[in-house]
Structures are given as C-alpha cells and as structure tokens.
Design a protein around this nucleic acid. Sequence first.
RNA 1: GGGUGCGUAGCUCAGUUGGUUCAGAGCAUCUGGUUUACACCCAGAAGGUCAGGGGUUCGAAUCCCUUCGCACCCA
Length: 875
Amino acid sequence: MSSKVEYNSKESEQKWYSYWDEHNFFHSEVDEREPYSIVIPPPNVTGVLHMGHMLNNTIQDVLVRRARLLGKNACWVPGTDHASIATEAKVVAKLKTEGISKSDLTRDQFLSHAWEWTNEYGGKILNQLKKLGASCDWQRTKFTLDDDMYESVIDSFINLYNKGLIYRGYRMVNWDPEAQTTLSDEEVIYEEKQGKLYFISYPLENSDEKLTIATTRPETIFGDSAICINPKDERFTHLKGKKAIVPIVGRIIPIIEDEYVEMEFGTGCLKVTPAHDENDKTLGEKHKLEVFDIFNPDATLNSFGLHYEGQDRFEARKNFVTELEEKNFVIKVEDYTNKVGTSERTKAVIEPRLSDQWFLKMKDLAKPAIEAVLKSDDIKLHPKKFENTYRNWMENIRDWNISRQLWWGHQIPAYYFGDGEDDYVIAKTKEEALVKAKQKSEKSISLEDLKQDEDVLDTWFSSWLWPMSVFDGIRHPENEEFKYYYPTNDLVTGPDILFFWVARMIMAGYEYTDKKPFENVYLTGLVRDKKRQKMSKSLGNSPDALELIENYSADGVRVGLLLSNAAGNDLLFDEALCQQGKGFSNKIWNAYRLITSWTVDENLLQPESSKKAIDWYSSVFQEKLVELEDHYSKYRISDALMTSYKLVWDDFCSWFLEIIKPGYEQPIDKSTLSAAISLFEDNLKILHPFMPFVTEEIWHQIQKRKPEDALTVSKWPKLHSFDKQIISEFTFASEVISGIRTIRKEKNISFKNKIDLVVINNESANRTMDSIISKMGNIQDLTYSDAGMEGSLTFRVKSNEYFIPVDGAIDVEAEKEKLKEELNYYKGFLKSVEKKLSNERFVSNAPEKVVAIEKQKKEDALAQIETISKSLENL
RNA sequence: GGGUGCGUAGCUCAGUUGGUUCAGAGCAUCUGGUUUACACCCAGAAGGUCAGGGGUUCGAAUCCCUUCGCACCCA
C-alpha cells in the first residue's frame, strides 16, 4: 500500500485546488439548471484574512459546495470593496512615512498613489480564501471601483436624486477630525469616558448678579450664543429677559426659555452652542440664535477661540479652564462619566459639526424592507432573533449621510456653477452638467465654470448595490445573467453589519428591482477569544489565519471553526477545535487506509454479520441524511457537521468497520468490500462541503477517475425509504454488546478470551443481530434458554437477561447488591408512574396518548420488577 | 436612559407548539486497554435542585411575574 499513516494535507490542498481551478469547476454560466447564487460580503481590498472572514467564508463554501453536489448551478461571486476611510487612511499614513502630505497632492496624484497601493495589496485576501478552499467563481471577481461598478454607483445616485430621494442639507454631522471626514451614525462608537463637569459662573449684564452653568466641554464657551432656562423653574424667573456675558469672550448673549432644559441636571441653566451640539442646534433654530463655529476641520480652534486659536480642542480646554480658574469663573469641578462618540476607524473623538452634506431619505425606502423581513417572510433572517434588532432600527430609521470628505471612492456627480445654495446640477459627465447648468441658471456658462463636488460617497453606498451590480443589474437590468442569478439565494455575514449593509441591500433591492436581493440571511457569530474578547488585530489576540491552516490543514480549520458555531452565537475560538478537525480528517484517512488494506478472496462467502452490518449502515446513513437535510434547511451548519461527524466516526468507523473487519491478515469477501467502498464514498460526499480536500484526495485514491467524475462535481446521495426496524434492532444489539463489554471490564476478562453467552429472551427480541453480537462480543457460543444459570455473571437489556458463565467463584453478594439496586430503581419508578395514573385530573385532562404512554411505562416496570425478583431468588 | 437577547454538566452549546424510561451532544476529566487502520486511537464511567424566588397547569428547562448576573443594539 502506498498510503501513508498520516495524511499529507499540504500536498493535497495545493494539488486539488489547482485541479478544481484548472477544470473550471467553480465557474458558472447561465444554463437551464436551477441557479444557486451567493455574493461574498466584499472584504476591504487591502485587508488580510482574519478569523471572521474564515468563519464566514467557510460557511458560504459549505453552502455552495452542497448546492453544487445537489446539481444546482452554483455561483459564488467573490470581490472586494474599496473601503474609503480605511484605505485612504492607510495611504495617507504611508505617504507620511515618505514625507509626503496629502494636502501637497492634487486629487489625481493622490489617487494614483492609492491605486498603486491597491494594486500592490489588492486581492491578497482573495488568494488567502483559496487556501481555505473557497470555491468562488474567480472569473467573476469584482471590485467596487471597477469601471462598471463605478458607473452603477453614479447611475444610482443620479437616479435616486431624480426621484427626489437624495438632497443636500446643512446639518449637524459626525465629524472625524483625524480623518477629516463625516461619518454615518453607524460608524460612531459610543464609549464611556471619565470626564469632568465644570461649573462656570456667567455675569449678568448691568447687574452684580451671576448665574452658573454646568458643562463638560468648557472650550465650547467660545461658541455660546445663549443661556437657556426652563420657564417653569422658579429659581430663575427673575432672569427672564435679561442678558448674560460670556466669560473671557465678553459676548453678550440672551437668556432664553425652553422646556427642553432639565431642571434637575447640573444647575438648571444650560449654555447653548448651536454649532457644536445637535440639541443646541435645534434650540438655536427655534430661538433664532447666532451660530459661532469655533473649530477648524482638524478640531483646532479658529479665530473665535481668541488667544487659543490654533490649539487642539483638548489642549485648549485645559488651558482655558486654567484661565477661567485664575479669573475666578470656576465654581467647582466634579468627576463625571459620559458617553463620548468615537470614530470606528480612527478612534478619534467625534466632533458634532455643521456642514453641507448629501443625504438619502430613508423612510420610504425602508417600507418594503420592513414588509419583506417582518411581515411577508420574503426574506428570512437566521437566527430569527435578529428580526427584533432589525425592526428597531428600521422603524426608527434616519436619513443617511452619504457624503464623505475623502478622495478615494466614487466622486459625487454634483457640479456647482455658482455660490448660491441651489447653484448645482447632478449629471453623469461634466458635459452633461454644462447643458443642465445652462438651463438651470439661464446664463452662459463654460466648462471651466463648473466645479465637481470634491467629496466621495460612503463605501456602503456602493456595497448596498452589490448583489445587483455584480451582475450588472443596475446598468442593464434586462441582461440574462441578472435575470438568472438574481435574487441570490443566501447571504452570510456578521450581525455587526446588519444595518450598515444587510438592511441597506434589502432597501436597494426593492427600490431597483422590486425584488428581494437574497432569500436567506445567515448571521454568523463574532469570533472571540477564550476570554470572550472580540478577536482583532489591535488586541493582538487573533491567531494568524494562514498559520492555522499551515498547522491544522484547511479542512481541520474549517471543521474547527464550524464545530462550536451555532448560528448567531458568538464563537469562542480555541485552537483545540482545529486540532479536533485535523484529528477528524486523520480518522477518515485511516478508515480509507483500512479498507484498502484488505485483500479479496473471490471464493469467500459473505459472513452473516457483514451482511447485517451493510443493511444496517445503509439504513442509518439514510436516517442521518434526512437529519442533515433538516439541519441544512434551518441553516444549522454546525449541527449538520456534528451529525456527519458522529455518523462517520461512531457508526461507520467504530461499528461498521469493526464488524466487517476480517481477522488479522485474513482476506475479505468481495461483496462486503465493494459495499464498504460504496458506503464510504457516500460518506465522502456528505463530508465534502466541510472537508473538501481530504475527501477529494481519498476519492481519487479509491480509484482513478476522470475530471468530470471528481468528487466536487459529483452527486449528493439520493434519499430513499429505509428500514427503521433494522436500526432499532441494531441499537438493541449494541446495548447487549455494551453489556458484555462492561462485564468484561468489571471482571477483568480480556477481550481476547472467548466467552459464552446465554440469553433469556423475555423481550422476544429478533435474533437477526446475533451474528453481530457474537463477533463484537467475541462470543464462543450464543445460546437461548428459559432459565437462568448458576455460576454466571449477569446483565440485563430491557427485560432480556444475559448470562456469562465463568470459571471459579462468583461473588454472589455483589451480584445481589447489583440486582437490588436495579430493583429499587424500578420500584421507585413504578411508584411515580402509579402516582401519576392515580391522579384523576391527570387521567381526565392529559391527552389519551400521554396516558397510554404512562400505562405502558407501568407495564414495563412491573415486568422488570418480576424478572429481577426472580433472578434474586435464583441467587 | 430606551430596547433586545441570554443564564442548562468543568467548557462550548442543543433541547422544536409545555407531556415517552428520573434533561442531551461535543470537548475536557477519570478508569481500563495497544504487536492487528488510527494514542490525532479503542472501550467504559462520572458529572446538572435547567441563575434565585414566586405563579399558571394534572404536568414547567419550556408559559407568566419578580430579583440577580451577562451580552448586544439604539439614544
């Protein structure tokens, strides 16, 4: 035999991935078969594979490979997104190390650096996915900045603008001063931070009186335009209509009244800074206050900050407080914990800022998306529990700020031709814009007068089109591919981007096609370490994905990741699971080695035990196939894996192979071997989605096969009716064998010594499994009898009694003890059943079936008590 | 502050609309075993007042209330 003791994963992973690739098995074209399509959640183009990707793509691969085996036209579209902020930040950082500042570059110069970077690192992650075994259709690989994808995004912007869904607004946005761009609400992470609450005294105009306000951000005092009190607050009625003087600044500001002010919080006097707080802005508009924007884009103070101009906000806060203290404006300072918004990407503290931004109206877009997930069940979330989270967000949806003050991305197709608020047009090209601008302004304008919006669109504004745009469905909705592959079937992603991405894709899908973009959404858990911390590069707790594959093989890592991952539950990652996965592939490998090590004797008759074992395993396999079907239909991938794992390891290896295994260096009969191989091949098929490499390797070692007969494109085993009787007979027999083993262990009877077995068949059990009992129990003579035997060890399965005659003395007392214990158990059990049955309310209220079961239990218990008592007497 | 989910064996989790022989699995643990495919193995055992309390019911891990603890989402 050429097969090695240990399976060489590295060799076969490389070999089979190229083989599949070479024969184009993963490529899909429109044909008459039923399509099965998945679009990959596009990772960041310059990203590297991490645990989350591995989990999520393993699940997708399992689904796709199974669909392929089921004979569907499986199409898994891979690709990457441009990750505007993340990539731009990386490029800026890289340029910095070269002594280049972004502000020194033109847009085009910067973009060529960004493309250089993208071309260098781009797609790396896709190659890493190949190592994992991902069966993507690589010929369809997409990137959100590909020309066709770019055009789709621009077309969609124009389309939505023309529908009146996109508008320009002067709004309070989340400003990331480090990246110098706005962020959507979803990109802001609120963190609890220890801060201080400063109580500051404001003098009143023409009076010696003072009032006190409380603020966490004293540096915004430069932007104060009013003091607000609650009209119901009797402490301050005398302040009505008066004016206060802003400390240091000297600005005279009105004291206004509004019920918005909480009387209990702070001092009951609120300073109003409309440019730097959302609520203050609302107050400002209501009371027509002046707006003083005191910050530069990098969150340093501008000229409103007086002698603090140019200082960073936090530095200015410190210095300004010192000055206020020196000049006796500070009453007291308290410790205060508040939630501070920080940027998901740069971790910088978010600065609320007023600026012109593009917004997408969400309310109407949300309607069909709510309907589809929560009412019609057109789209199903797995697990279902995420529906509540989804509802919560969708029903309180706010308009989406889609502009980003960045260069890397899809530049907004707005062209300005003047300084007025409304002096712009939306157009696909500058030339088109010129025509529109002339019309709108009714003036003569030249191309040079037009200036395109500097900003790009939020990355999610391109990925929300992904299931459509990868099939060119935005630009050419009538194309064959789009009509065939869309709607896609399943989407697999993490719950952390349920709103960022999933919900928005659903909205886009209905808006553009009136159809769902996918039918099922499988939300995986987040991968955490053993301490329940989320795995991330910054924490340094994430193992290197490729190193894991190196150590445990791709199959091992896939199995390891799936093993303990119920849908939606976080996965506590432990390398030991990969070890378990590797162990499993080794087990399969050795089962293969065993089978192929046997030599056939053509004249040998098939032993009865082998025949029974084949019948039994064929039935068990069918039973498990039904179970698998059920697990898959509910997206319980880890359960499907566990079912397969136990079927192959326990039923096939530990039972079936042990039963049919010929004696040492003995040959096997032909029909048993060929049945064993065929059953083994069925095993390989159901294992293939989980462990594509080792199964394909063995598949080809079993016999030489043509490319079109490769496992990856073979057929999933067919469901057919099966013999349930034989399964329960086998289960009974296995309990008998287990009883024999227990006796052997207790009494130190080596397995090599043959023993006799005598049965009192009180159960009238079928004797068809006797050959298996004899073989697995290493029984010399198996005989039936009506009476017990003296000088025997005994055990019982249901009410059947088994005797193993042994030489020498039997510890009668110990045997008695054992029987008494059993007797007590059944007596107690009988008592509880009788109690139930004597309860009239139970008998009259419980369903007939349940009562019948209880009666049956009583009968069984009585029978047990009788046989045990008899045995006791015999002793 | 508002919302959602969770708490079952040492660990990670199943447990379908309340009802079959005193709650299951995998891993870990313990005991025994190896010249016979695999010690990445085989056979077996132990381990749980289903977070605490109360209620509904003939019957509750499952439904309701409440307390405690944890996680996530939103503001």
